[in-house]
């Protein structure tokens, strides 16, 4: 089709989906098929649609999403490994009327940052914590994460994770749901269009709860790592359903009545 034909066709059409303005034009550095950038995009869609860009401050982690601030076009701070929720606490305490979210992977949030995670939730810090769980350290080359499944092969569990040497996968989302400081705790994913729609709803609700000063909202996103898992993106999403969901089932863990 020539460009004139396309333009003529599009004239009869209306745009129903476009990259949000709250994302920069920068090309994502993530591997093909990675869920991180979907999560970035959905957060930014909510920020755009809610019209809260001028009030939103994000905190980026260390890990694959260390450059999250190159894509999410809002004011952001880059935290030390594991400390995103402490940094977010500092921001929120001095700017209580802003929307503050932290963004972390499994190593960051559930290993090195466990203390900060637990205590931020336990204080009921009025922030949104986004936790992307793909059961592996992607950035450093595919090492075992606290959430790595039993039997799962990584570069530091080459024969598969065993209880004897590495203990059990950490279900930190269920842990924080037990804390009275959390108001809304949910586990979502981005492997299908519907899952993405559900995540968007969860993020929208979380910002609404933050506005109402309800306490900590915590969203785990069970995601993939095609490179680390050594699969194609399509295979990785199928593997995620088959292997991750039995231990990390999607759905609300703690939701207001």
């Amino acid at each position: 089709m020539g460009q004139d034909v396309v333009d003529a066709a599009l004239e009869q059409m209306e745009c129903v989906y476009a990259r949000p303005d709250t994302l920069t034009d920068t090309r994502f550095h993530y591997c093909p098929g990675c869920g991180h950038s979907v999560v970035h995009r959905v957060i930014m869609e909510v920020v755009q649609e809610a019209g809260i860009r001028e009030q939103t401050i994000g905190v980026a982690p260390v890990g694959c999403s260390v450059f999250a601030y190159n894509y999410m076009d809002v004011d952001m701070q880059e935290a030390a490994h594991g400390r995103a929720s402490a940094v977010a606490t500092g921001i929120k305490r001095v700017l209580p009327d802003r929307f503050v979210f932290s963004y972390q992977g499994d190593g960051d949030l559930a290993a090195i940052g466990t203390a900060e995670t637990i205590h931020t939730c336990n204080r009921g810090e009025n922030i949104l914590m986004v936790f992307v769980n793909n059961a592996i350290y992607g950035m450093t080359g595919g090492q075992m994460a606290p959430t790595t499944l039993l039997g799962m092969k990584t570069s530091t569990s080459p024969a598969g994770r065993t209880v004897e040497t590495a203990g059990f996968p950490l279900k930190i989302t269920e842990m924080v749901a037990m804390l009275p400081g959390t108001y809304y705790v949910t586990r979502q994913s981005v492997h299908t269009p519907n899952a993405v729609r559900q995540l968007k709803k969860a993020i929208t609700k979380s910002f609404q709860y933050q506005k109402e000063r309800k306490g900590t909202c915590f969203i785990e996103v069970v995601s993939n790592c095609p490179s680390g898992w050594k699969m194609t993106p399509v295979q990785s999403n199928a593997w995620l359903v088959e292997n991750m969901f039995p231990l990390y089932p999607p759905g609300d863990i703690k939701a207001p009545k």
């Binding site: 401050i57 905190v59 701070q77 935290a79 030390a80 400390r83 402490a86 940094v87 977010a88 606490t89 500092g90 921001i91 929120k92 305490r93 001095v94 700017l95 203390a115 900060e116 205590h119």
Partner: peptide
Amino acid sequence: VAAINMIYGAAGA
């Protein structure tokens, strides 16, 4: 550890 990172966040704000 948490305290100094809260300082980072609040100073950055």
